[in-house]
Design a protein around this nucleic acid. Structure first.
Lengths: 342, 342
DNA sequence: GTCTTCTATGTAACCGTTTACAATGCGAGG
DNA sequence: CCTCGCATTGTAAACGGTTACATAGAAGAC
């Protein structure tokens, strides 16, 4: 119906022209509606809605300095423990109007470094890191670009960087002491690659120290480092079972591996916990529904994500945030552990 | 050591000045290195590295038109089936140099609509949608802003929009026919909210039709719509077991619910599959490691994610992409189903 | 030596916003 | 009637890149 030669483009200028006002006024309608006269505001909004106009975030970020985006780096999404901490971060940021860019490093520090570089390129307002970043240049880059960040899943050596974590070592001790208190002496360990994953390393250390404290020698033939899938736990347990003298308990530093290990024991004709005790780590939902229900150490993944996000957003707003925040872990005793059979 | 009054800022102009070239040359060093003389290139790169300069993606997006970012909308991350399709998308996009912005709708179409709006605001180059979007305005907005998108987990009614999915209805029939072929006649159903989740709706329909085809009346007391957690499956199975005459089989339209249901049966003193058969849906990793191993329908989640990402990136590159892509599903028979006890 | 072509680089307009500052109009106080 | 202050709106300069076009040499063809 309009006989204008050029349809209004999806830009603030187009909207301004169509509404008969200046670009500044349109911008104000969007960002500070109460500073413009109601009648003008309505007119502008009408044009905006008719055209499904949506403000260009790139241009806004360029001009305004803030992207309202935060970056989250995790090793993997498929492990449900990371999924739940990520979901918590996501939820909080999303509610606060921030978008979340997720990068997945697959436990590869080199790749992580490159991905973080891309986050900087995208001028995220802040970053949440998971675990240790082995690349030394990372902190420098982040600092140079003035990007605040918080580290989760591990407390950083330098007190300056804010962390939200729990004590992996203490948690590992909790699990081991439970088994030792039940009388177990020959205990297998299944955990992640301690060379590439500092959480795995801490737990392995807890395993060794707990044994040492009771005067038990560590038998490395009972230690198996694997990826975090059921199949890996299954296979590792098989290896432990076939190493005589047969262990009476297994500490799986991850519930997934623990459930895989239970399946292996079942497959070998062993009863859990009658013949062999198994303890996990994480307290994933599956722990309550496995057969038998899994004894494990509860890790506050969602809390960790939420708190990390809260702290990061505070940092982004320029509020100071004190050092590290350590969350408690709990031993959850269920049905997969029992006193050593006599 | 330099006595210049102003340190070079983290901008292309700063780098240009420090390297004694023009901004165009710096830009070329970054985007088309082979068009600049090697000696000049080295000099510029040196300055870039010394300063940890990272190109501003916002400015680049503004000037260049592409953000190299794609948006992914999913209902939840914590359900491992979405996690794995998301991971596949993530991996492919990341490799192709695209960042992924993840938005989580929690099965709420209104929220989803708002979140998609934000993706448009961020000028993502493309969007991957999950399942049905109930908001009618969505397609219009996306089209108006010229943002290509593909729909996963469901084939869209309009042939024009590219989809990557499998046939939920057929998959549901597959599961039901398996139970019916084993002789089961009184079968419970546990599924998601069919009102808000069209995948759940399709599976429920398959359940009803399969029964009808064999002349069995549907007893709505055996149908339970719940959320996708173990606990929900557990509780729903409890309800089914206490509805006489007792069902001899349960179709859980989700492996998580199925495992929860198995726990409930075990708790009620019933043997699976001796007393009652249970079939799941999805073929999550847990299905192979539950006790007993779960019979289920394998859903090609990772493939779906990968293919959806491939198609989207093709669209983004302006290549045409034909209509819907339907992936096959398989019945995976394990140990949780057996002929009806005589 | 002149004309052409090619390579390497510089100049400056433009991308779509925000925002400091200026300008306008109007009512009130004196 | 003049001056001031306030509410409302407009003007134009950033923000940090990309890129079409112009320019300057150098090399090659004649």
């Amino acid at each position: 119906m309009a006989s204008d030669s050029k349809p209004p483009p999806q830009t603030i200028r187009g909207i301004a022209k169509a509404a008969g006002v200046s670009t500044a006024t349109v911008s104000r309608v969007i960002n500070a509606p109460n500073t413009v006269k109601p009648s003008t505001r309505e007119a502008v909004l009408k044009v905006i809605n008719e055209n499904d106009y949506i403000n260009d975030g790139m241009a806004r970020a360029l001009a305004g300095g803030r992207t309202k985006t935060i970056g989250v780096a995790i090793p993997t999404i498929t492990n449900s423990i990371y999924a739940s901490s990520t979901q918590a971060i996501q939820r909080l940021c999303q509610t606060a109007g921030y978008a979340v860019i997720l990068v997945v490093s697959d436990f590869d520090p080199v790749r992580e470094r490159e991905l973080i570089r891309r986050l900087v390129e995208r001028r995220v307002d802040g970053i949440i890191l998971t675990g240790a970043d082995h690349d030394p240049g990372l902190h420098r880059v982040l600092e140079r670009h003035n990007i605040p960040y918080v580290v989760t899943w591990r407390v950083e050596a330098e007190a300056a960087v804010p962390c939200v974590a729990f004590d992996n070592y203490a948690a590992g001790r909790l699990a081991m002491d439970h088994l030792l208190d039940l009388g177990h002496r020959r205990i297998g360990l299944i955990c992640g690659e301690s060379g590439v994953n500092d959480r795995a390393l801490q737990r392995r250390k807890a395993y060794c120290d707990a044994l040492a404290d009771r005067g038990i020698a560590v038998d490395t033939a009972l230690i198996h480092e694997r990826a975090f899938e059921f199949a890996d736990g299954y296979e590792a347990a098989g290896a432990i079972l076939s190493t005589p003298p047969r262990a009476s308990a297994i500490f799986a530093a991850n519930d997934i591996q623990a459930v895989g290990a239970m399946a292996a024991c079942r497959g070998a004709g062993l009863s859990v916990p009658g013949d062999i005790s198994i303890i996990g780590f994480d307290d994933l939902p599956i722990a309550q529904f496995s057969a038998p229900r899994l004894t494990t150490v509860r890790v506050p993944a969602a809390d960790m994500g939420r708190i990390a996000a809260e702290r990061l957003l505070a940092l982004v707003d320029g509020k100071p945030v004190e050092g590290s925040h350590i969350l408690p872990v709990d031993l959850i005793v269920r049905d997969s552990t029992a006193p050593i059979p006599t």
